[in-house]
């Protein structure tokens, strides 16, 4: 009988030690949450990594995870147009807009390319808040860690000290990473690149590349042949030797542009798990920088004297 009560007590104690449930839209937020929460959190990302964050399929099975979530972590911008469908389907009032469970990671982040004046669809799939690809910068990740750790501490005060300590470690590791990337990329500082999508503007603040142009003329719209020719001509004129294509964009077109301009094309992930090697935030940046340097070398870009 005593064993039976012990078993019941054990099972009850298990149920009272449920982890903090965190659902994120993107893999980047999921990785930060895991690094801060450790084994005290269960984290699920709706996005899996390689896909375009704007076109993620918000299936009902994702709603199962959000239904029991304590925190819903997202970009706060119009990056995830599918977010509202997911939220409405999940029926979890704890994570609705305006609740502590609604975690807007754009808080405190200065956005680039905020539209001024008239905004319309003639500008393509324009982001009305500004460029939303802010996750591609370790220093911005530091700010995101603050937003997330505050929400985690509020939702799970029992583990607040652990979260705080881990958040500090994450912030320091991002500082180290920023310095490491700058140092590593020094010989290629100012490397001119053309990207497919306007996803690398924040990255260019952390790793000194010069984004000379994009293959997409208007955001999210497949370019026409005349514009592609303009990009190729511009690359020839400016001596651009590297084309970056995101994992989800048209690599055949990117390859064509690179071939015509005498450049090299590289497919790079812009999110954690965009490629299997980019398992963490730190891995993502190291992977991208290593591949960029490799590609620059292969394209015959001479390193600068140090």
């Amino acid at each position: 009988m005593k064993t039976f009560f012990n078993l019941i007590f054990f099972l009850l104690s298990l149920s009272t030690h449920a982890n903090l449930n965190i659902v994120t839209t993107a893999t980047d937020y999921a990785d930060i949450a895991r690094q801060i929460g450790g084994d005290k959190v269960d984290v699920h990302s709706v996005m899996k990594g390689p896909e375009n964050v704007h076109n993620v399929m918000a299936k009902p099975t994702e709603m199962v995870f959000l239904n029991k979530a304590d925190l819903f972590v997202h970009s706060g911008l119009d990056t995830e147009p599918w977010r509202d469908n997911l939220l409405r389907g999940a029926r979890n009032p704890r994570v609705n807009f305006g609740t502590p469970g609604w975690v807007d990671m754009s808080n405190g982040i200065e956005l680039k390319e905020v539209p001024t004046g008239r905004v319309g669809r003639d500008q393509g799939d324009i982001h009305s808040y500004g460029n939303p690809h802010y996750t591609l910068n370790p220093q911005i990740a530091q700010r995101m860690a603050v937003t997330l750790v505050k929400a985690m501490m509020n939702a799970d005060p029992a583990n607040a000290d652990l979260y705080k300590e881990n958040a500090k470690k994450f912030v320091l590791s991002m500082a180290d990473l920023s310095k490491e990337l700058k140092e590593k990329f020094k010989p290629y500082a100012g490397l001119k690149v053309v990207t497919f999508h306007k996803a690398w503007e924040y990255f260019a603040d952390a790793v000194p590349i010069d984004v000379a142009g994009t293959i997409e003329e208007k955001v999210g719209i497949t370019p026409n042949a005349a514009y592609v020719k303009q990009v190729i001509d511009m690359m020839k004129q400016q001596g651009v030797k590297v084309v970056i294509c995101e994992t989800y964009d048209d690599d055949k077109l990117a390859q064509y542009v690179a071939d015509q301009a005498g450049a090299k094309m590289i497919t790079l992930p812009d999110h954690v798990l965009g490629v299997p090697e980019a398992k963490t935030y730190q891995d993502l940046f190291r992977y991208d920088v290593d591949k960029l340097i490799e590609t620059a070398k292969a394209a015959g870009v001479q390193p600068k004297d140090q």
């Binding site: 982040i109 860690a145 505050k150 705080k164 912030v171």
Partner: peptide
Amino acid sequence: DIDKVTGDILKDIDSRTTIAPTLRV
């Protein structure tokens, strides 16, 4: 700059104030 921002952010983690949401529109 990196060290300064990092220092500021570490202070933010210790502070009790919540982060004011950024009004975008």
